[in-house]
Design a binder for these strands. Sequence first.
DNA 1: TTGTAAGCGTTATCAA
DNA 2: TTGATAACGCTTACAA
Lengths: 332, 332
Amino acid sequence: MPQGKRPTLQDIANKVGVTKMTVSRYMRSPESVAASTRKKIAAAIETLGYIKNRVPAILSKSSSKTIGVLVPSLSNQVFADLVQGVEAVTGEEGFDTLIAHTGYSEAIEEEKVALMLSYQVDGLILTETRHSPRTLQMLNQAGIPVVETMELPSSPIDMAVGLNHEAAAFHMVSAIIASGKQHVVYLAARMDSRTLLRKTGYEKAMKQAGLQPAVVATLAHSSFTQGGELLKEALTQHPKTNAVFCTNDDIAVGVMLRCKHLGLRVPEDMAVAGYNGLNIGEAMTPALTSVLTPREEMGRVSATNILQSLRGERPATPVAELPWSINDGRSV
Amino acid sequence: MPQGKRPTLQDIANKVGVTKMTVSRYMRSPESVAASTRKKIAAAIETLGYIKNRVPAILSKSSSKTIGVLVPSLSNQVFADLVQGVEAVTGEEGFDTLIAHTGYSEAIEEEKVALMLSYQVDGLILTETRHSPRTLQMLNQAGIPVVETMELPSSPIDMAVGLNHEAAAFHMVSAIIASGKQHVVYLAARMDSRTLLRKTGYEKAMKQAGLQPAVVATLAHSSFTQGGELLKEALTQHPKTNAVFCTNDDIAVGVMLRCKHLGLRVPEDMAVAGYNGLNIGEAMTPALTSVLTPREEMGRVSATNILQSLRGERPATPVAELPWSINDGRSV
DNA sequence: TTGTAAGCGTTATCAA
DNA sequence: TTGATAACGCTTACAA
């Protein structure tokens, strides 16, 4: 319902009979204006319903006290945890957070980076390591601190906070093999860079054990039903399959549900391992064995690095590798 | 890595030997400048790596061509679908979308509304119907179109797009009763307003059938493990329970998993109904019976209403009630 | 304690 | 086809 335009500092000043400068002072430190003026300004703000407009300040200082976060998806607990970590740190320092999502697309990432920069964010947290040339150019031009997180890029734009997905996958697959399974298949979806890093770890573990790697993948988004489909495909292509390492917990849970449907016991007939350690895995019987990733911590460290950079300090670990672990599930 | 400041239109103008006005024109409609100038400007933009700064335009026109969307959570497919619907419409019309999350908190909603307004969004889409007094005052003052979505508030701020959760719950519960179950318990979490609407529908259905309503609730967030806990609690408080209507699919799936663990057959020993029709329900055996909600469509209609308002048109349905349905699951 | 003036980067308007 | 000027709302620096 567009109606009258929003009140400005000038409107308040007119009403009170001072200049907007006095009102501006009141907004930032009420003690700095006379007690009597203070009361009148407070009253005027109340009646007019003044809302601070931060655009002029951004324009003149070209700083917005805002950090942008780009996530691939809005429906993944993994990124929600990351954002929570970021906001825990930024909130304390009086910074706001702007969120946008890329749908795992480089082109959309480029759009969103432009959007964020056009809003003059002071720093940017990205969750992908592959970027379009124009994205890289914009980030370089913008000259703001940038953190790439969730994984460690081979050549970071600026700073990075991640974990060694390849090593985590290697260890998980080695554990599966150590449990006595020989026919381990990697189930992958979407084929984003983290999925590929896990694939590499899987393949190394298989080769080290003298086993033949077998990957069953889809370009589709991962989902629970997709997990069931991938298991079906794996059993068709590799009938001896008796273990699967899944690129994430959604796939893994889909596999477990399908196993029950097919009468396959987990882990006896089919060992199942996931990745991320989401809540759904804990609700399964047996509990899903999964790689635990420090999402919130990654968010926290990313934000800390950004804020340190903005203060002109040199972050202790501009490239930080955080630890992962494997939970005590029973599905392997 | 803060370095040189970003190039402005003036920098490009200096390099080319025209005024910034000409460059500004080029940015918006390249045909409006002479072909020779055009080429020189294009080259300068390329070398300097100019990034558009939209802050000044927002300042002078106090319009940002941006729509804000406030969702409760970043890890819920329901809201991801909503946003997708919104962006499908706004994207077509050249509007950008800013997303923030409230964690189901009125106080955080207030903060985020202020953030969005301070960035001069042209319209706002909210997913809650309860708002703090200050939020209401700010929205009223801002004078921008506002849509409340996901449910229908009794007195909308401006426009609304939702569905009748009470009726949907009523029908689902009636169907459970019709299937022969008498001891139907409602499992609730987080107790947000939609959870309460479903509770009302549940209670009406029970009373109409001459049955005693029984609610087992937690204030905690819903999760799969929480579903298991709630079932346990229901069976303790109401040992005869042979059906549960769950406030969402996460709870429902948690219940089904726990049922398997306990050796309860679904639906024979325990009928289970969910809400939202998420993918995980389809992966269950039997498939989860659930209420299908038109999330993406709600997003689309919400955005359409906002854009129509901005054009000064009167939306055909400022308050739109969208249809729901029940899937053909087998868990009831 | 309060006021004045200038400036942030863009665009609308009017002029050349 | 291009330019000059003013304006958007706030803050910084300086003045009273």
